[in-house]
Each structure stands twice: as structure tokens, then as C-alpha cells.
Design a protein around this nucleic acid. Structure first.
Lengths: 344, 344
DNA sequence: TAGTCTTAGTTAAACGTTTTTCTAATGAAG
DNA sequence: CTTCATTAGAAAAACGTTTAACTAAGACTA
């Protein structure tokens, strides 16, 4: 790092023989500057290697062109996809992203939020941690900049949100399994206190009900969302007196645990057991002959999130504020080989 | 977002009945302030919900407490682990992280670097893209803030770096396979233009050589580092007249492709084929009976990276600059079931 | 020709901090 | 009873921008 102190706009102005205002206007393409001076300014800026000081700029202008991205769990491949897309879209729109991983820890989440407030991010995108929001909604509601929730909603919090229609997701799985003739269907649902898990289960249940099948409540495995929990739940199900003919795992971690359990048991998919999972983790290709999944439209979710947030940002607080928009996007069923018609 | 304009230090000062200097000193624990005034200031700050304006602070103080993290490829689980650890450590040290994904695109990388310069990040951590650095080293070398390379080094660039000892990594794989009696060993090496790939191959070759085995050059598969390439290479190897008894995949994407190919071929690990891979991707558990791997010490690498960078940051440009440190950490072999002694 | 409108540019204020310099008060030393 | 340090606090400058307010010079209108 050999360079001395960085050049300021004043040095550019001096070299170009103009005022700093002219430099600013030229570089920001605001206001009128003659072709001649524009050329001189640009040449000077390039020659000096001028890079505007973002802090100074935002101190004066009031906008940082920074978005905060607060992720509940970076290790979840689905969230990672969201992060990738959101970073991509933001950067295309001229915004930088401060990434914060709360690792499902409300304490970290809160500290990160305070930091983003100090940074005066122009907006914050939050995939909230699962627990710890009761009584803490104010932290988000009182944020002085626009915020938007992704994937998970927080009960009793009036904020823009973009989520998957998780009831529809459960219903898709139900209809597919029913079409294949499955009646003994198990669910590894994660934590029943979690809205998403409940919605997916509700969708499954109602989807089956509308086909005249009732879900066997004894085949609903409830615990948390970890791979270990998925593995344990799967083990219980596989040892069940009347083994289910199909298992629905409602999240990436859970389905990984499920697949591991199946591999350990020496069972074959889909002959011994049909499996349907949510989202497409990188390892979906390892399951022969391909994983049947219900996918959440991660690209569309990222897209909607960023554009909604940025439109709020440009509305500014001048706007009528309006109602909180809560946008639900539709999942899709991708049929591959891990589900098969039940043997007669 | 109901709150009006955020309170400034002046309003805190007025409410506490002191000067802004006293507020600043109190909040930053710098300078002497009496107990009494400290209490008044803290109370006032809390009451107003004061959050210092980071831009103003860094404009004046010259430090942003922001680190830039420029990642070549977020989709690589190994890099993701690094990102997680780095974010964690930085945030523990009081730094925020601006995450930039270059997705192996030098153009994006360059734009992100310019942005980080504008943001006046206190330091930048770079996992550089594979290509596109010839003639562009200056972009990093001339950075006015401390920078550090992780995982990949750039030839001809004199900058701190933290990497795995990849020759040792290859040698570990070689010795393990040799111990098990394998002689027909294949490598899916990725791109031969890439230093890491070459080092790992060199390590494998020399490791075998020191045991008296020569690596069959026809069993070295070269292409790029994608999953597709890994899959294709594996397919070629599996159809080989004399099928190798063991395959070494030198990267996460490649090993995923390899495993997929094996699953498709209906071969069993380790009976038909031993497999050794690098790093522990989430799906390692899906391979029965467990994946044998050579791991890079990602935690230690993250740790070393952050502490080295932060020490450079606090040295400031006052320091003697000193030599660039290039730190190599040692990989480790984790033996599980995917490698087995060759059948006699 | 005198007045008014544009236009292209400059000057200077402002953003919210930190930090240097300054001041007044207290206490110790001679 | 001075003088000199020491201290806690205040006043003010500075950081590098953007932008509002201003100016001078042409171009147009009456």
C-alpha cells in the first residue's frame, strides 16, 4: 500500500483549474458543465486516481447507498442463494451490501441492527431469526430507514415482507404424493412453533384432506430444524412399525439428515421409500434418480425484495408511507425420481 | 419507520446540559469526564435513542471500522465457511463487513474493489478470482489500505497472504492412498493453469514418488473447476479401459460431480472405487460409509487472516511496512470409509 | 439601448462527528 | 499571598463532500 494520502476533490479542482463545485457536478452528472470543463475535470480525476470519499458524500447528501442484509443463518443453502442474488441485484443498482450473519442468535441480530442504524444504511433486508422476536418487534418497527422481511414474517409486525406461499407449498407436495397413491405419509416438520413449518404442514394436511386422505398425526415429527434433528426423526420413522411410504422434509437441513439416515439404513429411494424435499441444495444431484422437490422461487424473491425496498428508499419519508405490502410468491413442484408410485 | 430525523450529538449535549465535546468523550471513553456528567450524558443518549452517525465519525477520525471482503465464489462451500468465520471474527473485533461476490468475474472484482476504496474500508480481504490478474496486480498493490489474500495467491504480487500448504495436502492424499495399496490413482485436478491445482497435483505426485510409485499421467483429468467438469472427467475415468482404483478430487465442485457420476454408474464406494476429496462439504455425510477427506483448516485460516489484517490496520502507514508475510497453514487427513485397502 | 432571462461558473454554508486549543478553576509550592 | 501546574470542561476547527445562493456574461426582447 504505497500511495500517500488520497487526493480530495480540491486537488482535482486545482489541477483542472476549476472550482470544487464544478468537479462535483461533473462527476455526478448533475447541473450544467461545459464539454470543455467536463473533459478537463475527468482528465484530472483520472490522473490523480481520485475516488470520492463515501463518508463525506453521505454525510452531506444523507444517503449512504448501503443496504444492510441481516441473515438468520448463512449455512442454509437457500438463504445463501438469496444472499447471492440480493448482493448481485443491489450491486447492479449501485448499492453496497453490509452482510450480517446472526446465526439464529437474537443477541447478535440486535447488535447488528444497531450497527446498521449507526451506519445509516439506506435500507435493511432482514431474514429474521426464528425466536426472540416477541416484544422486540419495536427494534424493527422503529427503524428510521425502510426495512423488509424475507422468507419469514414476524407476527404482529407491520412491515413489508416477501415470502413463499408455504401453504401452497405443502399442498403441492400433498397432491403429488396423493397422485402417486401414497397414503402413509410422514412429515419431518421442524419446530411447530415456527410459522413456516406450520404453514407447510397445514398445506400438506389440507391438500391431502381435499383428496379424501387424512394425515396420520403419529407420523408428524416435530423438533427443531437442524440436520441432527432431521436425522433422528428419520431414524424413528424408518423404525416405525408401519413404515411410511413417503416422507416430506420441510427444510434443507432436515432433508440432509433424512437422506443420511436413509443411506445408513441401506434403503433404496424410491423403491423402499419416496422422498420429497424443499428447495434444491447442491447435493440434490447425489440422490439417484434425482430429488423430487418443491422449490421456492429464490430469484424472484430476491428480485421482489430488492425492488420493493429500493422503491421505498426512493419514496423517502415524504411518501404517504402507505400500507405494508406483504408479497407471497408461489412455489413450484419439480418431479424427479425420488418419488414413485406406490407398489400395489 | 415512524421516527423523525435522528438525534445528533448536539441534542444529546443540550439535554444533558454539557458541550458536545463532553458527550463525545463520554461515549468514546476517551479523555476525562466526571462521574456525574458521564451519568447525565449516558442517560440523555439513551433517552433520545442516540446512535452516532458513522459517516460523520469516520470522516473526522479517518477510520471506518469497515472491512471489505471480496470473495471469488460464494457458491463454494469452503469459501462460504471462510466468509462465515471472517464475518464472525470481524464483528467480534468491532468491524463491519461489506461482502462482495465476484463470482469469478474479474470485471465485477475490479468494480467492487473501486467501491471499497471509495468506502475507505480500513482493510480488505480478498479471495481473488482465478483469472484476470495478469497486469492487474497494481489494483491491489496500490490500494491505500492494508489488504490480504486468502486461499489463493497471485503470482508477482507482494502482499500478505494466508493459504493452505497445498503441496502438503496432495502429499497427505498420496500417502494415505499408498498406505492402502492403491497404485492406479486418478486425479480430477481442475484447471492446470491454476496454482492451487498444480500444487495439489505436485504434492500427490511427489508423495507417490517418495513411495516408489509413479503417477500415471493418463489418469490426470484437466479441465475447469465446475461440477459439470468434475462429472465429465469422472465419467471418462470410470469408462477407462483400466479403471482406476482410487480417485482424488481436488475441490468441492469437482468432488460433487464425481460423486454424482459414481451414483449414476451404480458403483459402490469403497468396494469398486476409493474416493478422497478436499474439504468437508455439507453433503459429505451422504456418502456411505463416510467421506475420507483432506481438510483445509478454515477456522485457523480465517483467524490468521483477520488478526494479521487487523494488526496491519493498527500499524497504520506509520509502521515500517515490513515484508509481506505469506503464511501457510497445514491441512489434515480425515480417514473415513470412502477409501479402503485395495482388494488382493 | 436598456432591461431581463439564461447560462456556466464560483463562493460559501452545511452535514455530524472528533480533536486540538483554549479557559477557568482548583490545589500545591514557594 | 503570589505563582505555577493540573484539571474538567467548553469553544472552535477540521474532515471532504453536496448544494443553495450568488455572480458575471451573453443572448434575447421591447
Amino acid at each position: 500500500m504505497p500511495a500517500g494520502p488520497l487526493p480530495t476533490i480540491h486537488e482535482v479542482a486545482r489541477l483542472a483549474g476549476v472550482s470544487v463545485a464544478t468537479v462535483s457536478k461533473t462527476l455526478n452528472r448533475s447541473g450544467k458543465v461545459s464539454e470543455l470543463l467536463q473533459a478537463r475535470v475527468n482528465a484530472a480525476a483520472r490522473k490523480l486516481g481520485y475516488a470520492p470519499h463515501a463518508s463525506a458524500r453521505s454525510l452531506r447528501s444523507g444517503a449512504t447507498r448501503i443496504l444492510g442484509l441481516l441473515v438468520a443463518d448463512l449455512a442454509n443453502p437457500y438463504f445463501l442463494k438469496l444472499v447471492e442474488s440480493i448482493e448481485w441485484l443491489s450491486s447492479a443498482a449501485g448499492y453496497s451490501v453490509i452482510l450480517c450473519n446472526s446465526a439464529e442468535d437474537p443477541g447478535r441480530e440486535e447488535r447488528h441492527l444497531a450497527m446498521l442504524l449507526s451506519q445509516r444504511a439506506d435500507g435493511v433486508i432482514v431474514i429474521p431469526t426464528r425466536r426472540g422476536w416477541s416484544g422486540r418487534q419495536a427494534a424493527l418497527a422503529d427503524l428510521p430507514m425502510p426495512g423488509i422481511l424475507v422468507d419469514r414474517r414476524i407476527e404482529g409486525l407491520d412491515l413489508d415482507s416477501v415470502t413463499t406461499d408455504n401453504v401452497a407449498l405443502g399442498r403441492l407436495a400433498a397432491e403429488h404424493l396423493d397422485d402417486l397413491g401414497h397414503r402413509r405419509i410422514a412429515v419431518i416438520m421442524g419446530s411447530p412453533e415456527h410459522q413456516i413449518a406450520r404453514h407447510r404442514l397445514d398445506g400438506l394436511r389440507s391438500g391431502l384432506a381435499s383428496r379424501g386422505t387424512t394425515l396420520d398425526e403419529r407420523l408428524i415429527e416435530k423438533d427443531n430444524f437442524s440436520e441432527a434433528a432431521g436425522h433422528a426423526a428419520a431414524m424413528r420413522l424408518l423404525r416405525h412399525a408401519q413404515r411410511p411410504t413417503a416422507i416430506f422434509a420441510t427444510n434443507n437441513h432436515l432433508s440432509l439428515g433424512l437422506l443420511r439416515a436413509i443411506a445408513e439404513s441401506g434403503l433404496t429411494i424410491p423403491d423402499d421409500l419416496s422422498v420429497i424435499a424443499v428447495d434444491e441444495p447442491p447435493w440434490a444431484g447425489l440422490v439417484r434418480p434425482g430429488m423430487t422437490i418443491v422449490t421456492q422461487p429464490s430469484e424472484a424473491i430476491a428480485q421482489t425484495t430488492v425492488s420493493t425496498l429500493l422503491s421505498r428508499v426512493s419514496e423517502g419519508r415524504s411518501g404517504v408511507e402507505g400500507e405494508a405490502r406483504s408479497i407471497q410468491l408461489q412455489p413450484a413442484l419439480v418431479v424427479r425420481g425420488s418419488t414413485a408410485a406406490i407398489r400395489t
